[in-house]
């Protein structure tokens, strides 16, 4: 038996909108720790890892570990039927091939339940070790989204370079080149508007903008985004989900042979 009641149902709606274009089908894993997902895109270049910790739910009952295969497009269709202020409860019985999403309006005057068919998904799970990164950049998520969008109108790839001068996003295409430099900026009153650069050593990596733009669908989940870079690892683009967990996107770089 599984029953997860999320008062801030809009969080789940936003999570789905941020992953459904990257991944078609995925297993949601439910355990005492929380509700999680790890899935790769079809070309095995990008990976999304989601965690919504059990403590973040108003009610969290998960009698035994359960993995539920869902088509994310279908799940998104169902969650779009929930109001932004609705409380969402996810329910499943042991051995059942369906999951139920229950939507309650804040005033309790409307209660809806949507039952969705589950599917068997053979998913590959990757072990992602804790790592030291050469540089970690924290910046406003809207600013990062804007940069990715702007650069993708010029080129297909972005070079992200971190030096003591700041973080530089560069692209080149048929019509020309573009460089955007963001410097560390902690002097603002609002911490979510600051840009903080922690650099152990300079790093410069190239990534496909198509994926970066897809990751920025998670922008509504968090004011800040953290970009962790190392020349030996895929980049991690992380959006913290207030008091609940995170959504992390991993992207393998483009490498010059």
């Amino acid at each position: 038996m599984l029953e997860l009641r999320l008062v801030q149902g809009s969080l789940l709606k936003k999570v789905l909108e941020s992953v459904k274009d990257l991944v078609t089908d995925a297993n949601f894993d439910c355990s005492a720790t929380g509700f999680s997902l790890q899935a790769m895109d079809s070309s095995h270049v990008a990976l999304v890892a989601l965690l919504l910790r059990s403590e973040g739910f108003e009610h969290y009952r998960c009698d035994r570990n359960l993995s539920m295969g869902m088509n994310l497009n279908n799940m998104s269709k169902m969650l779009k039927c929930a109001g932004n202020d609705d409380i969402i409860t996810i329910k499943a019985d042991d051995g059942s091939d369906t999951v139920t999403f229950m939507f309650e309006s804040p005033t309790q005057d409307k209660i809806a339940d949507f039952e969705m068919k589950l599917m068997d998904i053979d998913s590959e799970h990757l072990g992602i070790p804790e790592a030291e990164y050469h540089a970690i950049v924290r910046m406003p998520s809207a600013e990062f989204a804007r940069i990715c969008k702007d650069l993708s109108s010029i080129g297909d790839t972005v070079v992200i370079s971190v030096t003591k001068e700041g973080v530089k996003f560069s692209t080149r295409g048929d019509i020309g080149t573009a460089n955007i430099v963001c410097r560390q900026n902690t002097s603002v009153d609002k911490p979510e508007e600051s840009t903080i650069i922690e650099m152990n050593e300079p790093v410069s990596l190239t990534f496909a903008l198509r994926y970066m733009n897809s990751f920025t669908k998670a922008t509504p989940l968090a004011n800040s985004v953290t970009i962790s870079l190392s020349s030996e690892l895929p980049v991690v683009v992380e959006y913290k989900i207030a008091e609940m967990g995170y959504i992390r996107f991993y992207l393998a770089p483009k490498i010059e042979d």
Binding site: V45, A46, L47, A252, I255, D257
Partner: peptide, 14 residues
């Protein structure tokens, strides 16, 4: 020539 690396080159399957 620039090629796209795969995640499998960095992370092991578990």
């Amino acid at each position: 020539y620039i090629r796209q690396a795969m995640l499998a080159g960095y992370f092991m399957q578990v």
